[in-house]
Simulated scan of single mutants.
Amino acid sequence: MSDSKTTALVQAANHGVAWEKAFGYAQAIKVKDTIYVSGQLSHDSAGNLVAPADLDEAGKPQSFDNMEAQIRQTYENARILLAQFGASFDDVVEETLYVLDVDAAFSAASKVRKQVYGAEIPQLASNLIGVSRLAFPQQLVEITFRAVVDR
């Protein structure tokens, strides 16, 4: 695809945080009617982690008590990106949660997700995957999204 077609067909959105340039990626890309949202985490507008986990001597989270707060902020960051394309959580068709503790995430995410999507059983595909590490040591969760607009 030529550059002119890429520009016309592909739109990008970012938060303006340091790791976008350091790693080299866009937070979200819209291609035709589909929006792909990169892994979101619980940072504020300055790139500071919201509700960071306290770490033990080995650099691992001491507890997962901040899971719900991190999940809430993560959804907020996704909402901001979706809005840049005129989309909302009503347009999300799939999400994947990557978490350090599945049990803590299941409890926290089930509550937050129902509020975010405004339904007892949100109508989207969802995956909850336990991982051994995320980008930042104090990070407990990362969520990716796929949304389809103009359906």
Rank of each mutant, 00 (worst) to 15 (best):
A119Y: 00
A22S: 15
V37Q: 06
A51F: 04
V50D: 04
R79C: 05
V93Y: 03
A46P: 00
D101I: 08
Y75P: 09
F85K: 01
Q139R: 00
F145A: 08
N127P: 00
D44P: 07
D90H: 08
Q115K: 14
D33I: 00
Q73K: 15
A13M: 11
A87N: 10
N48P: 00
V10Q: 06
L124W: 01
A104L: 10
D3Q: 13
V99R: 01
D91V: 01
A78F: 11
G59I: 05
E20A: 12
W19H: 13
R72M: 06
L82I: 06
V99G: 08
A12Q: 14
K30H: 03
A69S: 13
L49T: 10
K5D: 05
E68R: 14
Q70W: 04
S38I: 01
D65K: 13
W19V: 13
A109R: 09
V17L: 11
I129T: 14
K114F: 00
L134S: 08
Y25C: 09
T7N: 04
N127D: 13
R146Y: 01
F145L: 15
A46L: 09
W19I: 12
V141F: 05
A51N: 08
G86I: 02
A147D: 11
S4L: 09
A8Q: 11
Y25N: 04
D91L: 03
M1H: 09
P61L: 07
A12S: 12
Q123K: 06
E120D: 14
L81F: 05
D33T: 10
L9G: 01
F23A: 10
F145P: 07
L9C: 03
H43E: 06
Y75A: 11
